[in-house]
Computed example of a mutant assay.
Amino acid sequence: MDNTYQDYLERIAHLTTPATHGSKLEHIVESPKFKATEDGRREPVAFPGYSIITPPGREDRANAEFYQVMADCQTRIAQRLGASLFAIVPPESFHLTLADLIWDGAYEEAGYDPQFDPKLQRCIGEIFEQIQPNLSSPQSPQWQMSGLVVMPRAIAVTLNPTNEAAYDRIIALRRALYQSRALMELGIEQQYNLTAHITLGYFGKATEPLDCQELAQFLDACAQEAMAAAPPFWVKRAELRKFTDMTRYERSPNFPVLSL
């Protein structure tokens, strides 16, 4: 289901243009992952599940400088859009999702089996153990910021691999996960192809009509400034993380980890 390397680069290039931003901004909708507070801001609501991600920002020392650039970009966007329209993701929870697993209603339904969580954790651990020898390398995959993307409910930073080998390593991980019969039996299957991104914030409600073309140019300027300042992004670890909402990604000491 995932793109080839060249198709991936071409798709991301299209998603990160001002013209695409402008057309996407005309159709944004309020994210249900955040709710309005009395003071006009937005706070996360319960949205439980599991993902395979890189360590969150507060734990990822290898990418501290990269995440600071992302936080500066986020601040600029948040000041432009306002708290009612743009709910920021705390920089300490910034991360790259390597593979979505299960979330929200599907996870709540799976929870009727009291053994679901340990089954999932054990299954991911077995997959990581099987593929670790094939993914070990002297140098971890290196990616780089390639722009901003406007999604229906969010704005995110997009990433491109620095070479085809870096892309193939992540695709190999995803293939091992999504082709696992054991994971399929737990109700987990691939639903999205890879769009490597780090979410900066989610949309709320606009208090006034948006000038989509002007905002598109603003976002492109933010992206160009951030790309000029951002160092490479290292993908050194893939971790199973349990999330309770879109700002909290936790792991127990026994949760499986894959070195990349």
Results as ranks from 00 to 15, higher is better:
Y202I: 04
A83R: 13
K24G: 00
F218V: 01
L96H: 11
D117A: 15
R241H: 15
S136V: 07
A176Y: 01
Q191M: 09
S31H: 03
I77F: 05
A83D: 05
A156I: 07
A156F: 08
H21V: 00
P253S: 06
R248S: 11
A172P: 02
D60M: 07
Y178F: 15
Y249Q: 02
V69D: 02
F94Q: 04
I131D: 07
P256I: 05
R42V: 06
R174I: 09
T97P: 03
E208K: 15
E92Y: 12
D245H: 15
E239M: 14
S140G: 06
E250F: 07
A156T: 09
C212W: 03
P48R: 12
N254F: 05
M227S: 07
Q74W: 05
P90Y: 07
I198A: 03
L85M: 11
K242H: 15
V150G: 02
R61D: 14
E10G: 00
I170S: 11
L148A: 06
L101R: 08
E225T: 12
L177T: 11
P44G: 02
G204K: 02
Y167S: 09
A216W: 11
A228R: 12
F86D: 02
V89L: 02
P91M: 04
F34W: 11
S84F: 00
N134W: 13
R42E: 01
L183V: 12
S146G: 06
A176M: 04
E65R: 15
I102T: 10
G22Q: 14
S259G: 07
N63H: 07
R251C: 13
P55S: 07
F86S: 04
K205Q: 14
K242L: 05
F47L: 07
S146V: 10
A154D: 03
S84I: 01
D168F: 05
S31V: 03
Q132K: 04
S93W: 02
S259T: 12
R248D: 00
I52M: 08
L135D: 11
H197V: 01
A83I: 11
W234C: 11
S31D: 11
T97A: 07
L260G: 10
K33N: 09
F203N: 09
P161W: 07
F233G: 11
A13T: 10
A64Y: 03
M246F: 11
N63S: 03
L135E: 10
K24Q: 13
A196Y: 09
L96I: 13
V29R: 15
R11M: 13
R241V: 12
T199C: 05
N163V: 06
A221Q: 15
L9V: 04
F203Y: 14
L183W: 13
D39E: 12
F218M: 06
T37P: 01
S140Y: 09
G49A: 08
A13E: 12
I88D: 00
Q224P: 00
W234M: 14
M246H: 06
A106E: 14
E239K: 10
E208L: 09
I52T: 05
T16N: 09
R237E: 15
D2R: 06
P133S: 12
Q79G: 09
D2Y: 01
K242G: 08
C222E: 12
K236P: 00
